[in-house]
């Protein structure tokens, strides 16, 4: 099937312009180094001791 990709393309550029005009960057709070150890520690490997 042939779809009109260029229509999508134009529409995207239009939206892009709009979305960046009214959106502030919100990446000031940023997680770093994530996944540097993907497949590393799994949460159930933490031991829990609620000490009294």
């Amino acid at each position: 099937m042939q779809i009109d990709l260029s229509a999508q393309y134009r529409r995207t550029r239009e939206l892009e312009k709009k979305s960046y005009d009214d959106e502030l960057p919100d990446d000031t709070f940023h997680i770093d180094n994530i996944g540097a150890h993907s497949g590393g520690i799994m949460p159930h490997q933490f031991t829990i001791h609620a000490s009294a």
């Binding site: 960057p25 919100d26 990446d27 709070f29 940023h30 997680i31 994530i34 996944g35 540097a36 150890h37 993907s38 497949g39 590393g40 520690i41 799994m42 949460p43 490997q45 933490f46």
Partner: peptide, 27 residues
């Protein structure tokens, strides 16, 4: 808090990269 941290870190790195490539904001 340690469980939250550990499980966020355990989400595969590829998921972050996909979000990044799709230009999603941190939030």
């Amino acid at each position: 808090a340690e469980l939250v941290r550990g499980s966020i870190e355990a989400v595969p790195k590829g998921q972050y990269e996909a979000c990044h490539a799709l230009n999603m904001s941190y939030y």
